[in-house]
Design a protein around this nucleic acid. Structure first.
Lengths: 187, 187
DNA sequence: GTCTATAAATGGATAGAC
DNA sequence: GTCTATCCATTTATAGAC
């Protein structure tokens, strides 16, 4: 990659980082291209050099989020002891999700009217699911119902924490009990 | 109430019903006052005779939702046998929530930028919590952690169903297993 | 109570100069 | 690549006639 396109990529990244910052402050749909441009230090039309439309910014944020989760999943060593493995998976995912509620909305809920992730943005999300399936299979859990129950339990703890006690610990401290409860039923 | 204000209330209700219909089609933030007015058969400014601002329409929808849930809770007889009671509570709430995903977003997530329910709209939601606490206390469950775990488990099943398999059964059919799992841990 | 007309602001996006 | 200027659509909300 030559110097010019390196600079281009750097600016693109800066725009995305600024978009995340605005999103954390004002919500996913709470900022305009004018605001974003101003926060980066340019005017709105210049953004079109880096993204062909606002939806493409959301798409890049969507893909970035799943790539982050994927990287985190891969970088987190999973214990072989089944219950310990579940605990690690739960804590890792819980922290990732709760540390950025807006990202959570973008990844798992459909909050932006009219936004659908492109196949490119969607691809990493499939890998995430795959990785989780393997992590379960290795400890002998292959029942699809168990995986669905696990995802429901975890996403419930996360969404309650994010919606009703942001910054607190009310549902986070139930993680261990949740793992035990799940393990007794499905392990 | 005289004839005039009866008619006024009727029109108000019609506006709210139409707002719900639009919301089901296009999401909570997916319709404008023009559209709403047109769907009712009037022009946008006439809406201001019934609601002083768009936020007040959301507020009325918010309060209406919790009053519906409250009424449903009161109208649903709860078995005395603990596990059967949990099952009834789970199914009742699950069906209520899943039958209208947009209502779910309005009630439990913070999806509309800038919207905060007024104290009046918020009041019924406190009664709902109270009712659930009593229903648990009567079967001997008073641990706050149990209630938090229950709300997380149920809201997780609901949100997974609404987000990832709308109209399907993938998480609904796990309700019995979820109740059993919870009962073994907390009953 | 309902309307037309319009204010006042904001939005995404484009044209074209530099 | 960045800008100014602008288009064009859309939004909530208000004024004032009927």
């Amino acid at each position: 990659m030559d110097r010019r396109s390196e600079r281009h990529q750097a600016t693109r990244s800066e725009i995305l980082a600024t978009a995340w910052s605005l999103t954390n402050d004002k919500g996913l749909t709470g900022w305009s291209l004018r605001e974003l441009a101003a926060a980066v230090g340019m005017r709105a039309p210049s953004l079109y050099v880096y993204f062909p439309a606002k939806g493409h910014i959301y798409d890049a944020m969507f893909g970035e989020s799943y790539r982050q989760l994927l990287e985190l999943s891969r970088a987190t060593p999973l214990p072989n002891e089944p219950r310990e493995r579940l605990r690690t998976m739960a804590v890792t995912f819980f922290n990732f999700a709760v540390e950025n509620p807006a990202r959570l909305q973008l990844m798992f809920w459909r909050v932006i009217p009219g936004f659908e992730p492109s196949p490119d943005g969607y691809a990493p999300s499939l890998q995430v699911v795959n990785l989780a399936q393997n992590a379960f299979a290795e400890i002998g859990v292959t029942d699809p119902a168990a995986l669905d129950m696990w995802s429901a339990l975890l996403s419930g703890l996360i969404s309650q924490q994010a919606s009703n006690d942001p910054g607190g610990n009310r549902w986070r401290r139930l993680l261990d009990d949740a793992v035990d409860m799940f393990a007794r039923a499905y392990l």
